[in-house]
Write a protein that binds this DNA or RNA. Structure first.
Length: 410
DNA sequence: GTAGGGTTAG
């Protein structure tokens, strides 16, 4: 089926003759047509099995897919393997290693793919270093944003600062995606003053920039600053969305600001902001932490689809309030609903058992937890290299501006 | 000329 489809697509895009190649508009149009077809085919690709067939066709029939279309096609194949939920990052890695001169799209797909993959915390930054050293592709705003995300996830502060200076040197620091990436990176590394410096330097801040800063303050418990910025955002005429509201609700939860939290909840309703899964979970947490467990349960009961985090938040809430029976009953309902518990869920039920001296129940949950493959302890280690990351050549600008770190590591 | 940023539980 796929074979036939591929054949028909490729046959409909005839290989340009030498005459056509000299006739630039015709050649260019033919190439573009072929690339559109290949992109379509990969976009519709259901799984790795089909993707491997497409990849095989490309390699076996280079005459129907000449350079530069082969480069384009391979970067599309790579993008699917590295980024799609039905992709395969190890296949992407093997493919990437045999591409002679990967283009910037391929580098970016791999950097982003490794950032999203489990147990690959070192890989994105190593790859970024390889990209800079290779000198065959210049980072763009996508590269910088993806690497910054990887640095945020891995709390790789030294590397992130270097990436900041690279953003400046390559003239990419005016990209809104890079700016948001920088704010998030600094906020996640608890360098909130640096995050704020980036935020203050943005001209024409959009909703994402405001939300990122509000979230940065909320995350480290600076509730007043978070809520103050939320007010300021509205004063400049920007309307918050559900993502902004989640951070604001989280700030109320951390501050134990029930009055404000209730006002925010009514604000969400009044403005018609969708109380999606994440926002509802944030509300449950806020009401629970502010002592209003009944209201938390009301929000939970109104939810249609609950994930592990929503169930766990409610279970932990009950446990914290000493409502042991409610916590254990909810855990049973969660299992009946076929939602998989995680370490936080078990922490909730075990803490409920501890509060009420239910030793035998506790032992059963302890065994069930280990049977589920959840170890009693887990470590999240940021195994990042602290070695220097330097571009191979070509700096666009120097020296660094105020607030932008030097590229040299001490 | 392929693609992207801000959100929740311990």
């Amino acid at each position: 089926m796929l074979h036939k489809l591929f054949r028909s697509i490729c046959c409909s895009c005839s290989t340009p003759s030498p005459l056509q190649i000299h006739s630039a508009p015709s050649f260019s149009s033919s190439i573009q047509h072929l690339e559109e077809k290949i992109a379509f085919l990969i976009r519709k690709c259901p799984d790795m099995r089909a993707l491997r067939q497409i990849h095989g066709h490309l390699l076996r029939n280079p005459f129907i897919c000449p350079f530069p279309s082969l480069t384009f096609a391979l970067s599309k194949v790579l993008g699917f393997c590295a980024l799609s939920s039905s992709g395969d990052i190890s296949y992407a890695g093997r493919l990437f290693d045999v591409i002679p001169q990967p283009n910037v799209f391929s580098w970016n797909s791999m950097i982003r793919g490794y950032s999203q993959a489990q147990n690959q915390s070192m890989a994105p930054i190593k790859l970024y270093k390889r990209m800079l050293c290779s000198g065959c592709a210049i980072p763009n705003s996508y590269t910088i944003a993806f690497v910054l995300k990887a640095c945020s996830n891995g709390s790789a502060y030294a590397e992130g600062r270097q990436v900041h200076s690279h953003a400046y040197r390559y003239g990419l620091d005016s990209s809104s995606f890079v700016q948001t990436g920088l704010m998030n990176f600094y906020a996640k590394c608890e360098e909130i003053a640096s995050a704020r410096a980036v935020f203050d330097g943005i001209h024409g801040k959009n909703l994402v920039a405001w939300s990122a800063m509000i979230s940065g303050y909320a995350r480290i418990g600076m509730a007043n600053e978070s809520l103050g910025l939320f007010r300021e955002m509205q004063e400049v005429g920007l309307s918050p969305d559900e993502v902004t509201m989640v951070s604001v609700i989280s700030a109320c939860a951390k501050a134990g600001a029930l009055g404000l939290g209730r006002w925010i909840h009514s604000f969400v309703k009044r403005k018609g902001i969708t109380a999606d899964l994440v926002l509802s979970t944030a509300l449950i947490d806020m009401y629970s932490k502010c002592g209003l467990i009944k209201k938390a349960k009301e929000v939970f009961d109104e939810m249609v689809d609950m994930d592990t985090m929503a169930w766990s938040t409610m279970i932990v809430g009950f446990a914290t309030h000493g409502l042991v029976e409610d916590a254990l009953n909810l855990f049973s309902r969660m299992i009946e609903s076929k939602v998989k518990p995680n370490q936080v869920t078990f922490l909730g039920v075990l803490s409920a058992c501890a509060h009420s001296g239910l030793v035998s129940h506790g032992r059963r949950f302890w065994s069930a937890m280990q049977d589920s493959g959840i170890p009693p302890r887990w470590n999240i280690t940021a195994a990042w290299s602290t070695s220097s990351v330097e571009p191979a050549s070509s700096t666009k600008r120097s020296p660094s501006p105020a607030g932008c770190p030097s590229t040299q590591t001490s």
